Simulated scan of single mutants.
Amino acid sequence: MHYPLIHTLLALAMAYHTGVHNIQAAKTVEEIMNALYYNKRDYAYIKENYKRLANAIAKQAHYDNLTTDPEKTAKVMEKAFEKTFKIIDKLLPEVNEENLEVLGRAIHMSTDDPFVVLRNAGIDIEPELEEFRQFLAEISGKKIEAKKPKSPETKKAVEDVKSSSLSQARLEVLSILNGLEFAGFTEDAKRRAIERLSMKVEELLKADPTPENLQALGLYTFALEAIRREKLERLGKL
């Protein structure tokens, strides 16, 4: 469960650091994440060795021609790891049935505002997401103004847009999964699903890193990795 979250946030950091807002930023991070996954490294290992992993990602980025200064990239990725851990530790303090059930309800297609579900369960990650958003702005050389309080009318309009955007992401993933099942999970169907999801990831890497876009990006990335690794039963449960 930790892998898609880490992959999503680190890919965003790589995209904003290098200015390469396409699937390559995600693939560079994926090279290291795959090595960890296949060696069955858990979240505790990642937290303990994140500086070494940041250096490995920086070297991979240099190899992929995303950066000419791997030392600087390593420092940026170290900070990205640290801020990612803050989000994950708040969102998923431990992997158990109760926490996974809360996350499942938060991203369910019938949920209009996932943050309400999380807050009701005692989880408020909006401050950590805003901190990550500011971090992305800093490494890209742009300054993001702090959010100002909204009027009730403006708040309702924004929430309506949020609901529409999140529902679209959930429906897209469900549509892809249903299409795969209908096609009998053939290699061609999986290839087309991966292409479709990769396109969505690339679009969101270019978008404003709002909490809603981060969540949608996490959904698409989870689905992408589940299909690539043929862990479709996990995607179906989620």
Rank of each mutant, 00 (worst) to 15 (best):
Y3Q: 10
I6F: 12
I6V: 12
H7G: 03
T8F: 01
L9H: 14
A13S: 15
Y16D: 15
A25P: 03
E31V: 15
I32H: 01
A35W: 01
A35S: 12
R41P: 00
I46M: 11
N49I: 00
N49P: 00
N55S: 15
I57K: 04
Q60G: 01
H62D: 15
T68V: 15
E71I: 08
K72R: 15
M77T: 06
K79M: 11
I88D: 00
I88R: 00
D89C: 03
K90A: 08
L91F: 06
I107C: 04
S110M: 03
V117R: 09
N120M: 06
E126K: 03
L129H: 03
L129G: 03
E130Q: 07
R133L: 07
Q134D: 11
A137Y: 13
G141L: 13
K143A: 10
E145K: 15
K148Y: 08
S151H: 07
S151L: 12
E153C: 00
T154A: 11
K155Q: 12
V158D: 14
V161N: 07
V161P: 04
Q168W: 04
Q168H: 07
E172T: 15
L174Q: 12
S175H: 08
A183R: 12
F185P: 10
F185C: 07
R191V: 00
R196K: 14
L204C: 01
L205M: 03
K206M: 02
K206G: 05
P209D: 06
T210D: 05
E212S: 09
E212V: 12
Q215F: 08
A216F: 05
L219E: 13
F222H: 11
L224D: 02
I227A: 02
L232K: 00
